[in-house]
Design a protein around this nucleic acid. Structure first.
Lengths: 210, 210
DNA sequence: CAGTGTGAAGATGTTCACAGCG
DNA sequence: CGCTGTGAACATCTTCACACTG
């Protein structure tokens, strides 16, 4: 695990994985850096470099074995075995995520969901019971869950995150649009829709080519 | 508009804006690069550099005027006037987005929503009527909308995007987890939850410090 | 004199271009 | 012969360190 994969490269590897997922089903079992790069809009050199950094398992004169590459990347991302997550905040967004199939496909199972609103506690969404947030600690420690998803309003997000960390959660996907503080050793991935809009808006107003 | 703002810097500017939004309300009217960097977990040098590249409007020995900086960034991102968007795909995720307040706060108004499902066409969500996707072209051209949000299943995403572009949409926020092809001159921002999970999972499995 | 502005150094990421292997 | 592997050149981003000014 000495490899120093850059964040940028990591991001691209995710794209490769996503693309290979389909390529594998629909096209064939060998892919060249050129084919991949054309599909994703990158340079072939970049792809070779990324894959080379990871170990370089292509065949000269042929390309990369899709199955192998796919499996390698899956394992590389730790998606080869099932992983459990909890979700806090069962409003609209929370609900969508509970039903989102992309998680399951990557073996991420949201097993427990919590909220503070008495009116929705007790309901079930996509087979997951919504419990009182007071029971979070119990669930997390008993099941050694390390993934937490925050879909609460921004105002309570930091508080929820603190509680999560307190229960032992180590990786947090935050959908509340607020800057969250976390201690060393915890990973946080912020998903901010508004930020994406700003990016688009910027490009529209500054006429930057895609 | 000759400034060459890097994508990385742009991303950070978005964070600055988000943080200032609160700082402005809750703290005060002057902020130093150190304060901002501590809050966001960056280096102060980085922040000074970013802001310097944009024009550098701090006061030596004092810091940056929050109001000014905030306004500058808002305008820089083109968020100073209202912008209209359409949304296609009114499932759970689409519904959440229609109700999401972060868009409105940035003056992005989703004015029209479309779907193909006869069962939900005609309903109203957050004050927006769900119309038949066949009427998309009519709406977009009549209102000169340039922003489109795709929240359809992956299988129809490319098709929807093509239609959007055909109607004149120039900037697309894609929530379907599939690689979308777009022509020159159109901006696309992919939002992929699974990708964020992969990122977290990677960090969990490789024990990289945050 | 505190905190920005800023050139220059250093680190990191990308592209080139071609050698080398299947 | 084709496409990967790969050092080296190049481009970009980040950090340093201190001059400068309100």
């Amino acid at each position: 695990m000495k490899k120093k994969i850059s964040e940028a490269s990591l991001r691209r590897l995710s794209w490769y994985l996503r693309y290979l997922e389909r390529f594998k089903e629909e096209v064939g079992d060998v892919i060249s850096s050129k084919e991949l790069s054309d599909a994703l809009g990158l340079s072939d050199a970049q792809i070779r470099r990324d894959l080379f950094t990871l170990g370089g398992f292509g065949k000269r004169g042929v390309g990369y074995n899709v199955e192998n590459l796919y499996d390698f990347l899956s394992t590389f991302f730790g998606l080869d075995k099932e992983q459990t997550a909890i979700l806090v905040g069962c409003g609209n967004l929370g609900k969508s995520l509970l039903q989102y199939k992309g998680f399951k496909k990557r073996k991420f199972i949201i097993k427990y969901a919590f909220d503070i609103d008495k009116r929705i506690i007790g309901r079930e969404i996509a087979g997951v019971l919504i419990e009182d947030i007071k029971d979070m600690k119990k669930r997390v420690t008993a099941n050694q869950v390390i993934y937490g998803i925050v879909t609460t309003p921004a105002s309570s997000a930091q508080d929820v995150v603190n509680q999560m960390i307190d229960t032992g959660i180590k990786a947090i996907l935050n959908f509340a649009s607020i800057t969250i503080k976390i201690p060393e050793g915890v990973a946080l991935s912020p998903v901010d829709f508004a930020m994406e809009l700003e990016w688009l808006s910027y490009h529209m107003h500054h006429k930057v080519k895609t």
